[in-house]
Amino acid sequence: MKYTSREMMTIVAARQIRNGDIVFCGTGISMLAAMAAKNINAPESVIFFETGAIDAQLDEIPMAVADSRVMFGASLNGGLLDAFATMQNRITGKKVIGILGAAQIDRFGNINSTVIGDYFNPDVRFSGSGGACDVASFVPRSIIFMQHEKRKFVNKLDYLTSPGHLDGADGRKNAGLAPGGPEVIITDMAVMRFHDTTKQMYLHGYYPGVKKEKILENMEFEVDVSMAEEVRPPSLEELKILREKCDPQRLILGKI
């Protein structure tokens, strides 16, 4: 069965979510991945929004994390203060997996969602951190969605909005951040992870039909590709649930 790149990315992300995880979601593909995980492989995961909604029912896809659709059927509706405290909290925070996106990423998984160009005279201004910097600072694991383009996988970020592993092995510890950091990068071509010791990004998997050379051509920096294996495409069952149950209007998935 044919599938789109967005469907592949969503399912690959959903597979990273474990039963029992509290999933911090943003707008768009990240909440879809969380919905897919809950319906496929992690029925007891909890969808969690920075706006304060816990375990929202999500009968319809929200267009923003403040959409009234995140309020309906939630276990409780709080506010930003509670939501971020839950992630900074030493007990609940350990269970949280963040899902983030960005305009640029570097080899240590630090991300930029603020500006392209000089911060004081930007070529392009983006939304800024929102809650991303908080999540990236607090939680032990996160998934980052990226489009696989050379201008996005850069040697040096134009602005470091949200911390990954900072400058490598002891980066987070030296800065005073909680342990953890990004665990996996999911792009439209590949899955990247980080070496246990050096915290450098490496190619973990490539999508069916995508050559390793093409992946490297679309990045400014080199990564280790020696451990890469082909990523399993979405199964019929996974696709069916994603399309029929999670986003029947294809608001996030887009056209086939």
Binding site: Q88, Y119, F120, D134, S137, L160, P163, A175, G176, L177
Partner: peptide, 15 residues
């Protein structure tokens, strides 16, 4: 006090 933004440009760059 908060534990977020350590090591980032939110701390380093002032608008």
């Amino acid at each position: 006090p908060v534990r977020s933004s350590l090591g980032t440009d939110i701390v380093k760059k002032w608008g």
